[in-house]
Design a protein around this nucleic acid. Sequence first.
DNA 1: ATTCAAATTTAAATCGTTTTGAAAAATTCG
DNA 2: CGAATTTTTCAAAACGATTTAAATTTGAAT
Lengths: 349, 349
Amino acid sequence: MATLKDISAELGLSVATVSRALNGFPEVNAKTRMKVEATAKRMGYRPNRTAQRLVTGKSNMVGMIAKLNADNTADRTFLEILTGLTAALAERDVDLVLAVDQEDDPVKAYERMLERGILDGFILNAPMRDDPRVDFLTRRGVPFVVHGQTAEDVGYPFYGIDNTAVSTDAVQLLAALGHRRIAFLNGDRSYAFAADRERGFRSAIAEAGLTVPEAFIGEETPSESFGYTKALEMLSGRSGARPTAFVCASTMIAAGVLKAAGDLGLGVPADLSVIAHDDALPAFRAVEFEPTLTVTRSPLRDACVPLANHLIDHIDGTDGRDLQTLVHAELIIRNSTGPVPQGGQDPWH
Amino acid sequence: MATLKDISAELGLSVATVSRALNGFPEVNAKTRMKVEATAKRMGYRPNRTAQRLVTGKSNMVGMIAKLNADNTADRTFLEILTGLTAALAERDVDLVLAVDQEDDPVKAYERMLERGILDGFILNAPMRDDPRVDFLTRRGVPFVVHGQTAEDVGYPFYGIDNTAVSTDAVQLLAALGHRRIAFLNGDRSYAFAADRERGFRSAIAEAGLTVPEAFIGEETPSESFGYTKALEMLSGRSGARPTAFVCASTMIAAGVLKAAGDLGLGVPADLSVIAHDDALPAFRAVEFEPTLTVTRSPLRDACVPLANHLIDHIDGTDGRDLQTLVHAELIIRNSTGPVPQGGQDPWH
DNA sequence: ATTCAAATTTAAATCGTTTTGAAAAATTCG
DNA sequence: CGAATTTTTCAAAACGATTTAAATTTGAAT
């Protein structure tokens, strides 16, 4: 591997000048710079990251810690993020160090990574409301970016979708179609995204002058089986009049709901409307549902580039407040939603 | 952060002695060592990895590149490995840098990681037969460990299960139970594990004096739906007499076969025997199948510690040939296999 | 007490870069 | 043309560890 010294020897220049030439410093003569760049290229020079790091204190590495559920259900979305993120980071010459958290205290794994002292910052995924990791890293002065929101008016960088709006958009659409009995199959409430969705749902329901009995609000780690069993139960009529519409936290849940509707001989959207939030996973496409699914859509993949850039910019000194992105998910009306069926207009209670 | 210099200043010793004391060199006085260790601890000293790396040339980081199928189906097993592997590496103070390969040429991603020059070695997962990555890394002189086998009599470290034996054990069990029509639902043949399973299957079938028409050998990325549709087809009788037993590459496939059997009103093991290979994913337990599943079992998790250790030892200089582990999967006979049903004793052809 | 060997410790070089402060070269100006 | 600038280049320090070769201390033997 060619080093700065090799180049400087080759050209009879000092290492300092070579370093400056390659790093675009203004005080180096144009002719010199050309020569240096040419020989650097010819000799296949690549700066030694370790040496750079020793002197600059920056490692060009960031960490991410995967927190797996007992049943590994986070896989799909996690790998989706991982794919986009590694690519986006590589674009800015940053590597991703991965660890998997297997214990109770979410902060422990970060503490251990930090001890090694090889990371410039972290990407925090699947945040909870008032996530303890945020507190911990803030206190330690470690840069990080959050995928999602842990609270309002925060000082750190984040990229997330407006989850309150996701729910209100869905409810407003259904209400406009005349639905009065709208059930909600949410994700695990301990996560910020689900907590926000629930707030949005409740406020939009109230806004529309409606109520929803607690029996028609379910929450669990999103899965098709959760959607299926919960929808079956809610549609059985045991807990009250059957809902005419479902708001689902994920397309997986919606798949379960559609299956339950099919098993009960209910037509969608004739007898039942279904809307879900769509993370746009390539393996699970809402347009291919039967019927095609009405969704609020926000590709997980879209988060990756902003997440990477926010974090790197923050590490480079940009204020966290200037690195916050909140996007409004797009409402896409397809064939799984329709007007409230005849005889389904009575609200609960 | 306290440095060696801080400690040496505190004790009036030279940095060299402090370094030696902390690294257990024999030539340092016992009393001195005690003092050094005590103050190091008191001052919270942690060696600066970057500095260590610059001088030793070792980074204590290894890379892994995830290759995702279009539909991300590798998720489960990949995350399982990732979990165990990061833990096993951490045990030896090594970090894992992850990248995701999104292009055609499998070697490109490795080339790019190598360019950065920050890695001591690689873990190669899901190898194909005569995997090009092996060639590439060997030529470059980069240490690596393979999870699986890419060929016989190789010089590099690996950990894998004897996939030929997996198939022969399964076939021999079924043959001993009197089965003569044994179908095979294999994984994607382009992967080494599936190629080996197929070889084992064919040789064991021949050994038992049997034949299997090609219509009863299926191969695809393992999934429940593959097992279901393929079993339905094979059991339809359209391609010949229905098999009395299935050998499945994974428990997921077996789940599909059981479902197909159920749909067709076939009892397991009364009318049909099913055996699968079990990676022992925590989310997918063969003992909880109905009926409990007969398997050849080899927990993926077991691979992690040997993989990590083999790689690290190899990086530290141990010869690759001394770091090869091939385990024989355990045959666990449960309730999904039984004697050949009445009237099912006729072999194919 | 002197000599020699063994046990300890040390100063200094090294890894490959960035960056400071000074020096040299080139340019401008009176 | 010489002085004053402005450009451009350079030597050396720094980052924090490891390691070589040399120096010192210690202890035993004469």
